[in-house]
Design a protein around this nucleic acid. Structure first.
Lengths: 231, 231
DNA sequence: CCTAGAGTGTCTGCTAGCCGACAATTGTAT
DNA sequence: ATACAATTGTCGGCTAGCAGACACTCTAGG
């Protein structure tokens, strides 16, 4: 994880994917749906460090994460650039699969991961049989599209501090903590490490966050949300 | 059309919608599909200046433009901010309709417009009956999503000149002309009018474009594409 | 307990692009 | 024709944020 200040467009693409698709609320499928789709794939368990899929492979499957976290990264394994981490509820690889394109990132199990794997060839007929589910997926993807566009705006002409605030609001866990290095946050936002650092200092000065090693603790979500602007 | 240098986030959202959805290649439906969906709506003809839908209305319908151009704009009619123009093949309003949200923009016929109007209440059952079409729509929307994200990158960290070049490449018609004011282009890109002007001058200096009143003539598409970077 | 590698805190340029302002040009409606 | 509106062309000032550099701090692995 060295590439930090040089964040080529492709890295950021990934960052985008992560930010947009990694969101757990992008869950187009209910348990009932899954029941109906049980023929379309299978549950898979992955040991830490193993891959769900790799960048560049033909996208024959999509995955719905059930348990555990998955890192999305790009580039050769040796110098991989982690670009996002998704947890239970996330659907990954569906775009590539439906669009019949190679995966644009690699997905690697962080801890023990359980996921439902949809196989393209089996899923399509199944969807043709269950239009309601297809429709649900469609609505989910359109919602996602809308959200992505909306988010774009919030990035495009917002100051780094607003972006950082937004990221913290979205990414903080139950304890209000965000366990990301400033460099990673910078990549996620498409900003420079220095700028993120500066923004964080400002927020710290205002008493809205505390920072630590690879950690940011959110103290005032309301305040941050306000800074971030509507989302 | 005064608001030019102040381009609030919402305006740009619209710009995004226009740029992303206005693209004629976002056509998920073949004539055969339409035939199958003929129960889901009806063909409508609009006189110049009339509206297909207005911002804020409940999105009960989506439209597939058949003939003529449609302006997408935002704000009160008096001081409307045109934010994009779409032609035949474009599908508009589908996001709002499927997501059950109000339209985010108004759509107004520029010339005589023929369009197919999908009515939500009739479309949904119809889609349930024709899963293949739903699936096609899904794939189209995911492709669109992917494209949008990719495009985001090209905007996010590219210089204005690169953005302008990209816009020209995408938006030029058969004669290699783009009939947009610099101010509109600026809004579309989320840049300032002045910067766009400067970029255009640079391109002109290099002999890659000619400019006129509300018009840019593309002389060297290859060159522009290269400047724009991969898309 | 030490040390190497990762991450953080800061500083000094530097520049793209924004903003406001205003003149010059082109279109359009009377 | 002619006046008014829309658009283009340009300046100068100003600021956010990037790049490079470097010291300092934390943490994990022997």
């Amino acid at each position: 994880m060295t590439i930090v200040n040089e964040t080529p467009a492709d890295e950021q693409h990934l960052a985008w994917l992560a930010r947009s698709f990694g969101r757990p609320d992008y869950l187009p499928l209910s348990p009932a749906d899954l029941e109906a789709l049980s023929n379309a794939g299978a549950i898979v368990k992955k040991y830490p460090g193993t891959h769900l899929f790799k960048e560049g492979e033909a996208a024959t499957s999509a995955f719905l994460v059930r348990e555990g976290d998955v890192d999305l990264y790009r580039g050769p394994a040796a110098q991989r650039e982690v670009v996002g981490r998704v947890g239970p509820g996330a659907v990954i690889g569906d775009i590539a699969m439906f669009s019949d394109q190679p995966y644009i990132s690699s997905a690697r199990a962080v801890g023990h991961v359980t996921a439902f794997r949809f196989d393209r060839d089996r899923l399509l007929p199944e969807l043709a049989r269950s239009p309601a589910i297809t429709l649900r997926w469609l609505v989910a993807s359109l919602t996602q599209l809308e959200r992505t566009q909306r988010r774009v705006l919030n990035l495009m002409h917002r100051t780094v501090i607003a972006q950082v605030a937004g990221l913290l609001v979205n990414e903080s866990d139950e304890q209000g903590e965000v366990a990301l290095s400033q460099a990673t946050m910078a990549t996620l936002l498409g900003a420079s490490r220095q700028s993120v650092n500066e923004a964080l200092n400002e927020l710290k000065r205002r008493g809205q966050v505390e920072t630590g090693y690879r950690l940011v603790r959110v103290l005032d979500i309301a305040g941050l949300s306000q800074i971030a602007g509507r989302d």
